[in-house]
Amino acid sequence: MTALSAPARPPSPRPAVSRADVLAIARELVPVAIRRQLWVLFFDRDGVQLPMVVPLDVGPGRPDVREVEHLLASLARVAEEFGAASIAAVIEWPPAHGRVARDRDWARTLRECADRLSVDLVDVVCCAAAGVDDLAVDVTPPGRLGELGRGVDTER
C-alpha cells in the first residue's frame, strides 16, 4: 500500500514588476473585449496579485472626474481592507464602442484622480477586439512599475 502525501504547495506567484507582467495578467483575465467595463486588479506589497478582481460597469461616454474620484476612493478602502498595496486597471471596450480617444481619456482620468487621492494605481491597460495592449502607455509615469508592490508613493 502506498502512503498518501499532502499535495504539493503551488509555487508562489511571481510578482508583477513590469508593464509586461501586468499585460500578461490582463491578457489571462480578459483575452478579448466582450462588454464595456473596467477591471481592477489588486497587488500586495510584494507585487503579487491578490486573488480578487473587481469588474465594474462604466458608461459609454467620457469619464466624469467626480465619479472616477468616488470610484477610486471606494477601491482604496477595499484595498486597505484586504491588504492590497496597489491596484491596476484594465479598460474593456467592445469593438462597437470605439476606442483610442476614449481609452486614453479613461486612462488619463484614472491616473490623474489616483494621483490626487494618493491611490497607488500602478498601471492602466486596454482591451478591445484584438485583445489587451498598452495603448495607455503614455499615462503611466516612467519607472512607476518598478515601485509596484513596494508600497512606495513615488513622486509623479
Rank of each mutant, 00 (worst) to 15 (best):
M1R: 13
A6E: 12
S12L: 14
S12F: 09
S12R: 14
R14C: 13
P15Y: 02
A16G: 04
V17K: 13
S18D: 06
R19N: 00
D21T: 10
V22N: 02
L23T: 13
A24Q: 11
A24R: 09
I25V: 13
R27Y: 07
R27M: 04
V32E: 08
A33F: 03
A33V: 06
I34P: 00
I34R: 10
R35E: 13
R35G: 13
Q37K: 15
V40A: 04
L41D: 00
L41F: 05
F42I: 07
D44C: 13
G47Y: 03
V48H: 06
Q49R: 14
L50R: 11
P51D: 15
M52V: 15
V54G: 05
P55A: 13
P55I: 12
L56S: 08
L56K: 08
D57G: 14
D57F: 09
G59V: 11
G59Q: 13
P60F: 11
P60G: 11
G61P: 00
P63R: 14
R66L: 10
H70A: 12
H70P: 01
L71C: 09
L72V: 12
L72G: 12
A73C: 14
A73K: 15
L75E: 13
E80D: 14
E80K: 15
F82N: 03
A89K: 00
I91G: 03
I91E: 02
I91P: 01
G98C: 04
G98T: 03
R99G: 02
R99K: 02
R99M: 00
V100D: 13
V100I: 15
V100G: 03
V100R: 06
A101T: 00
A101R: 08
R102A: 01
D103W: 00
A107G: 04
A107I: 02
R108L: 04
R108K: 11
R111P: 00
R111D: 00
A114T: 06
R116I: 11
V119Y: 02
L121W: 03
V122D: 03
V122G: 04
V122Q: 05
D123K: 01
D123W: 04
D123Y: 01
V124A: 13
C126H: 09
A128V: 11
A128M: 07
G131W: 10
V132G: 01
D134V: 07
L135V: 09
V137T: 10
V137Y: 06
D138G: 12
V139K: 07
P141T: 14
P142F: 06
P142W: 01
G143I: 04
R144Y: 08
